[in-house]
Design a protein around this nucleic acid. Structure first.
Length: 251
DNA sequence: ATGTCCCAACTTTTGGGA
């Protein structure tokens, strides 16, 4: 089973690249964020033509998350209590899969930062109460770099969002429900960024962060055969500012 | 670090968000 997560930064702007990537990489389940589409505008047919069923939670201009699966898609779960299109879950081929788009936070003194922490706490509560008979994957754009290894220059980010203690503690709380970071399970010491700002030549300078994460039920840790960032997908014409993360599981 | 991208709209330029 191949599971991927990708913040596409507008599925409208990125549809060609996303479909091309699905064909080339063949994930069984793809978890997408920042579709920036209303549900009516979601390109269900384009995914169906490649054999994928879809579940989308959209709101239009901002946010928007989707699960696309070619191994079945059932029991769709939509959103948290905030009303923003930031969470969708579905059961796909025996896996309970969640696509998450955690609020950015903007700055430590911004009300959006407190909203981010509340949102992560609600996600944690939701997962703490999960059905333990079905293995879970919780993946997406968390807008948090879990450790200093996950940013290009910790000193440059001092006092900024994405690296603060409370954000990292919130992720620790999520993990404590019985999850494992799939990429770190296989690559504990390797920097592997997933996001580079469009501005300032950040990609070519290596100014990135690992903020797109794949959390698996801890029981699945021994079943992870591969876990990597497809950095090449950040290259070329009209890329997203995020690269996909791919995890192969031997179920 | 900020040389970009994407969206909407009182739309051909600006403002908001990332």
């Amino acid at each position: 089973m191949r599971v991927a997560t990708w913040n596409v930064n507008s599925l409208n702007a990125r549809l060609g690249r996303v479909l091309e990537w699905l064909e080339a990489n063949g994930p069984d389940v793809a978890l997408l964020q920042e579709t920036k589409l209303r549900d009516e505008a979601f390109p269900t047919e384009a995914f169906a033509a490649l054999g994928y069923a879809s579940a989308h939670v959209g709101q239009g201009q901002w946010n928007g998350v989707a699960v696309v699966s070619r191994v079945g898609l059932a029991e769709v779960e939509r959103g948290l209590s905030d009303g923003e299109a930031r969470l969708v879950g579905a059961t796909c081929g025996g896996l309970r899969a969640y696509s998450c788009y955690v609020p950015n936070g903007r700055a430590l003194d911004d009300p959006h930062y407190a909203y981010k922490l509340r949102w992560l706490d609600e996600l944690t509560a939701r997962l703490a109460a999960r059905d333990r008979s079905v293995p879970v994957v919780v993946a997406g754009d968390f807008n948090v770099a879990p450790a200093d290894l996950d940013v290009w220059d910790p000193a440059a980010l001092e006092g900024m969002t994405h690296v603060s203690g409370p954000e990292r503690a919130a992720l620790d709380g999520l993990v404590a429900t019985g999850l494992v970071d799939a990429v770190r399970a296989l690559h504990p010491d390797e920097p592997c960024f997933t996001w580079w700002d469009y501005r300032g030549g950040a990609f070519h300078r290596g100014w990135g962060m690992r903020i797109d994460l794949v959390y698996l039920d801890a029981d699945l840790a021994p079943r992870v055969r591969a876990a990597y960032v497809d950095r090449d997908a950040r290259k070329g014409p009209k890329p997203s500012d995020h690269a996909p993360v791919v995890v192969d599981l031997d179920l």
